[in-house]
């Protein structure tokens, strides 16, 4: 989301911390995400009182208590709907939603997609750890098939959601992915989310070291990260690999990984265009299980950004036009109506 009023407040990350003891499990990925948000906030130039963080229920949803802004820790799945009502009535506020794979895609899935299609100018941070942490270890709507959890002792038979593809399917105007273990990239994605005018959907891979440790290890650990991920940069070719010697090409609509050599060089690669919805859709579908032999790297960065009017602006515009045409509402006229009669 964007906010054009720049207020040079000399705030630091510390100003955004509260006196509440942070109560996530030691080693939880949420600590890093909190730290990056606290680092980024002072750079955005928004007065602290104009920032509102709204969460639902789940481990990540404790987030507002640790941010010295306005905040609401609401009920399960409804942060997106609460934020919609707030933004509709107070468009000048910078509204951030903290949700998780259960909160935002399961119990609150309906509100998530509807917020995206309405394009409220808010930022969704979806912490995806592919597990239910707060209820102690059941599978989530992003857990992989066959996953053995407390509620699936014989393995999960649920097919998982692909959050980025889901967001694109709901006509989100900003879709990005980052991870807890890459602070720099996460900060950059938070700044981009904020800068986007419209609903920003940022999926953050977050490690739950208690119930689903290492779920994203292959993407986040030094030894495998460079071969298993591709970082998207607008206008730049899709290069990956520890040696920066691999890239992605499009064979028709099919993405193909190639190694540089006789046949291909960096010049032959697919150049990322954030504004191309069709290519963004293909990128979002690069969702292979990295444990399978033939698989493509997982994309991180901004998949897609586009612009269309925001719900709250349209709403304000209709009100403005009505007042312009009819004048401000006159209560006596309303109560009187068109037809009256008098009893003497």
């Amino acid at each position: 989301m964007s906010n054009t009023t720049v207020n040079p407040l000399p705030l630091t990350a510390k100003d955004f911390a509260t006196d509440q003891e942070v109560r996530w499990c030691p080693g939880c990925g949420d600590y890093s995400i909190l730290a990056q948000v606290q680092k980024v906030m002072p750079t955005l130039g928004i007065p602290r009182e104009n920032i509102v963080i709204i969460s639902g229920i789940g481990c990540s949803s404790r987030f507002p208590y640790y941010m010295n802004t306005y905040g609401m820790h609401s009920i399960h799945g409804r942060a997106t709907a609460i934020a919609s009502g707030l933004k509709a009535t107070r468009p000048e506020l910078s509204v951030w939603i903290v949700t998780g794979d259960g909160d935002g895609l399961s119990i609150g899935g309906n509100h998530t997609i509807h917020l995206l299609r309405r394009n409220f100018d808010v930022n969704i941070m979806l912490f995806n750890n592919q597990i239910y942490g707060l209820t102690k270890g059941q599978y989530s709507p992003t857990s992989e098939e066959k996953k053995v959890t407390k509620s699936t002792p014989f393995g999960s038979i649920d097919h998982p959601f692909n959050p980025a593809a889901l967001a694109l399917g709901a006509d989100a105007t900003f879709v990005a992915r980052s991870m807890d273990r890459d602070p720099k990239h996460l900060q950059e994605m938070l700044i981009r989310s904020h800068a986007h005018k419209g609903a920003s959907f940022l999926e953050i891979y977050q490690n739950c070291n208690i119930f689903n440790d290492g779920a994203f290890e292959i993407f986040t650990e030094k030894s495998s990260k460079q071969d298993e991920t591709v970082f998207l940069e607008h206008g730049k070719p899709l290069i990956f690999g520890a040696q920066k010697n691999k890239g992605l090409r499009l064979d028709g609509f099919k993405p193909v990984a190639v190694e540089f050599g006789k046949e291909f060089s960096a010049d032959d690669l697919w150049v990322h265009d954030e504004n191309d919805f069709h290519k963004a859709s293909i990128l979002s579908r690069m969702f292979d299980n990295p444990r399978e032999a033939e698989h493509l790297p997982r994309p991180f960065g901004v998949f897609y950004e586009s612009f269309r009017s925001c719900y709250e602006d349209e709403m304000a515009m209709q009100i403005g036009e009505a007042i312009e045409q009819k004048g401000k509402g006159d209560l006596n006229k309303l109560l009187r109506g068109n037809e009256t009669w008098t009893i003497a």
Partner: peptide, 18 residues
Amino acid sequence: AEDEIAGITAAIGAAYGG
């Protein structure tokens, strides 16, 4: 709203905003 729950929770958001 998209459903009854969003109807009331959006109203809660608006009430929170004044």
